[in-house]
């Protein structure tokens, strides 16, 4: 059978890989949350440097995510164009000045303020993108559930994640088999068939998939119950890695970054944006 791997987890043994899953989750949440609070380009710039630095330390294979990154950049460009079309004066209203760069009409004028505003937004993505990739690239699938439980997500919800990871390849394999078997009986799910037929054909693949999956669900829930699942309010996790010195350091650094961002936002600048124009 063809091997299917949802997460391409490879233990590269870097500092980040060796951290507990809980640390990875907490740091990821802290840093993304911090990013949400501010549009201050100086702060965001520092965060970009930080997140790219971590990505390099953990040997994130940027090449593998090339298509994904390109997609995000195109999306950003598209977003910029759309913003400009609908509200080209948003930047000048925000910052209270108007430095004209290119004048198309009086309304459609590209200002320095508008570009600066868009830049602030774009940089945010540059912070979050490597962090997100990093999180899924360095967390071991079986650590995900225990980590979520570690940040107080109810354990039954966490189990759903880990079961989804466990059985996704099986269901994917079922789907392939069913799909092929139906094609052999004359269903055309290929692009050649008209859309209406394809949708109809698709339901014919879906029905057996749903029924065979329901069989599986029944079995799994029995198997879990027979081993005492769900009787207590809490449970422990075999794959949980206890926090060590490095974990506390990493979490500490992230908390400091988080506080720094809040201080910049609410004490120093007292505004969402840092305004270089006044």
């Amino acid at each position: 059978m063809r091997e299917t791997k949802l997460f391409a987890y490879v233990d590269k043994g870097t500092f980040v890989h060796r951290l507990s899953g809980l640390t990875k989750l907490v740091c990821f949440l802290l840093l993304t949350l911090a990013t949400m609070f501010t549009f201050d380009i100086r702060v965001l710039g520092a965060m970009v440097v930080l997140s790219i630095a971590i990505a390099i330390i953990s040997k994130l294979p940027f090449k593998r995510y090339r298509a994904f990154i390109a997609y995000i950049l195109v999306f950003l460009l598209f977003n910029f164009c759309l913003n400009f079309l609908l509200a080209p004066d948003y930047g000048e209203n925000l910052f209270g000045t108007r430095h004209e760069l290119i004048v198309f009409t009086e309304f459609y004028t590209l200002t320095l303020e508008e570009i600066f505003y868009q830049l602030c937004k774009g940089v945010k993505f540059l912070v979050i993108l490597p962090l997100g990739l990093l999180f899924f690239y360095t967390i071991h699938p079986s650590e995900l559930a225990s980590s979520l439980n570690g940040v107080k997500v109810p354990y039954k919800v966490c189990t759903v994640f880990s079961l989804a990871l466990r059985y996704f390849p099986d269901i994917q394999r079922d789907y392939t088999n069913i799909n092929l078997a139906q094609q052999a009986r004359g269903i055309d799910t290929s692009k050649k068939a008209p859309l209406k037929n394809r949708i109809l054909s698709f339901t014919k693949v879906l029905i057996p998939l749903v029924f065979s999956t329901l069989d599986r669900v029944d079995l799994i829930s029995n198997a879990m119950e027979l081993r005492g699942y769900g009787k207590d309010k809490t449970r422990t996790w075999y794959s949980f890695r206890k926090l060590e010195r490095n974990d506390y350091i990493a979490i500490g650094v992230c908390i400091l970054v988080f506080i720094f961002v809040l201080v910049m936002r609410f004490v120093v600048v007292k505004d969402l944006f840092w305004n270089p124009f006044i």
Partner: peptide, 28 residues
Amino acid sequence: LQDADGQFVGLNVGEDIAFALENDNVEL
């Protein structure tokens, strides 16, 4: 159970063997 594949709830062998202990809150 009959279907050893279906009742394998862990993502790896250790996790699956530990499943009952996890539910008992046994320490790591």
